[in-house]
């Protein structure tokens, strides 16, 4: 899967409360959540994000709460992929489970700037910054994780395993 988009860049420890504040957790429809995505860290995000755009951040992206509303809001806002130095554990699982592509790559996370046009290839982990011409390589996924991603997320993977796919 090859993804391409314009970058929105943030720093370290982007927590789930700024990704989707709890005042909106009385809803769980991704489209409703997307209207408030990143609201407390970047009030302009919802206005400027375009389908396929990429979020780049440094360490510990998605720390804090287990709310799956956070990756759901990001995915529904149109973001195609998140590249970060590292992800908080629960956010990492949630993103893979719901089919939001994420890549761990410190070099890219440090180097890429807001507005850069970036391409990412999930299976190989190759990231290309079309604006600067630089290339980076993300940490490869463990085989099982790739299988999850290729199945379309954890529920689809489980359906296959249980033979309940309709």
């Amino acid at each position: 899967m090859k993804l391409s988009g314009r970058v929105h860049r943030y720093g370290a420890n982007v927590d789930t409360d700024v990704i989707i504040p709890a005042r909106y957790l009385n809803m769980s429809d991704p489209a409703d959540l997307a209207n408030h995505c990143m609201e407390d860290i970047d009030g302009e995000f919802v206005k400027k994000v375009k389908p396929g755009d990429i979020i780049v951040a440094t360490a510990n992206f998605g720390c804090g709460s287990s709310r799956e509303h956070a990756p759901l809001a990001i995915k529904a806002s149109g973001i195609g992929c998140i590249i970060a130095t590292s992800f908080a554990r629960i956010f990492y699982r949630n993103a893979i489970n719901i089919g939001l592509p994420i890549l761990e790559c410190e070099e890219a996370a440090e180097d890429v700037k807001s507005g850069d046009q970036v391409e990412a290839e999930l299976a190989s982990g190759i990231i290309v910054n079309r604006t600067t011409g630089r290339t980076y390589r993300a940490k490869p996924y463990p085989e099982f994780m790739l299988e999850l991603i290729e199945s379309g997320g954890l529920v689809d993977y489980t359906q296959k395993k249980l033979g309940t796919a309709s």
């Binding site: 709460s65 287990s66 799956e68 990756p71 629960i90 489970n97 719901i98 997320g153 954890l154």
Partner: peptide, 23 residues
């Protein structure tokens, strides 16, 4: 548990961890 503070039960010598709703 679908709550990040599920880790609380480690106080009892359990392996308890928070996960998302899909997990």
């Amino acid at each position: 548990g679908a709550d990040s503070h599920t880790c609380t039960y480690g106080a009892l010598g359990a392996f308890a961890t928070g996960m998302g709703s899909t997990d």
